[in-house]
Design a binder for these strands. Structure first.
Length: 281
DNA sequence: TGATGTGTTCTGCT
DNA sequence: AAGCAGAACACATC
């Protein structure tokens, strides 16, 4: 389940593979809903439109990956739950969920190519112009990056709404990049109940939540994310942050602070893991 | 068959 | 009208 640290790890893995390289040909086994093009590329399929372009820069915005080509067009990728990029030998047998295969300008020399695999097919790749991306409603509404916000700015933002803390952290328009794992971990670290309301939480505690969140995200990036379910980096390497989880996935296990049993509860159709003793409402 | 998992979008309520 | 909660949806797996 790629969240901010996992997506950052993927971006860092893609850079040495793609930057300065060209897309020679792209083989697609993807349904048309998975790989799309913006209006200015109409009439062309994703594979056709991307072939021949070269990669300039690769960036992350929230959980989104932005691969900017030297002609200004952008491949906007959202991995959703199970999307993965893998850099593999060209002769590796194709998995049935390998949906796109990118032959690169140096593939003949290296014998390697890039694949996009997504067994649930929720992920999306779109080839757009810069303008189309900036005006796309779901991209334009993204909230600030956690690291770009001071604790004071986070407090001010939170105080403006009346929302359960867990829901606010998961809301990509409130803050970009946080998913279920890191929301639960940040709330545990700050000893805040997931159902506590933003407007009923003191500025001090909200500031502490922001500090916990950025510390945890930073630490998780250093550990190349959490390998839970099927997540792996571009070169097949797993992250190791899952060994540091204190709340997420620890239902029925003792809290490491007070030994109380960690509870799992549905909040807005999402499981929330928390310690009922350390995190009081 | 239907429950599961997660981010985004839709619907309807206050 | 704005802002929110909750449902629906995108899928494959078992």
């Amino acid at each position: 389940m790629p969240e901010l640290p996992e997506v950052e790890t993927v971006v860092r893995g893609l850079r040495p593979i793609l930057i300065g390289k060209g897309f020679r040909t792209i083989s697609s086994f993807a349904p048309s809903a998975v790989a799309l093009v913006g209006p200015s590329f109409r009439k062309k399929k994703f594979s056709q439109a991307l072939a021949g372009k070269s990669v300039g820069t690769i960036a992350r915005r929230g959980k989104n990956i932005l691969i900017t080509c030297t002609d200004g067009s952008i491949v906007w990728v959202h991995l959703k739950m199970t999307g993965q990029f893998r850099y593999v030998r060209q002769d590796e047998v194709r998995d049935k969920h390998d949906l796109l295969i990118f032959e690169l300008s140096d593939s003949d020399a290296t014998g390697m190519h890039l694949r996009y695999n997504d067994y649930r097919r929720f992920g999306r790749l779109r080839l757009l112009t810069t303008d189309e991306l900036q005006h796309h409603p779901s991209f334009a509404r993204l909230g600030p990056e956690p690291f770009d916000l001071t604790a004071e700015q986070f407090v001010e933002r939170a105080k403006r709404r009346k929302r359960q803390l867990k829901a606010a952290l998961l809301d990509q328009t409130f803050i970009a990049g946080v998913g279920n794992i890191y929301a639960d971990e940040a709330l545990f670290a700050a000893r805040l109940h997931p159902r506590k309301l933003t407007n009923n939480t003191s500025a001090t505690r909200l500031a502490a939540l922001h500090t916990a969140l950025t510390e945890i995200l930073g630490f998780a990036i250093e550990h190349m994310g959490s390998s839970i379910d099927s997540y792996a980096g571009v070169n097949g390497e797993g992250g190791s942050f899952q060994t540091y989880l204190k709340a997420y996935g620890r239902e029925d296990l003792p809290c490491e602070r007070c030994r109380t049993t960690i509870r799992r509860e549905l909040i807005g159709q999402r499981s929330a893991h928390y310690c009922p003793r350390c995190q009081r409402l």
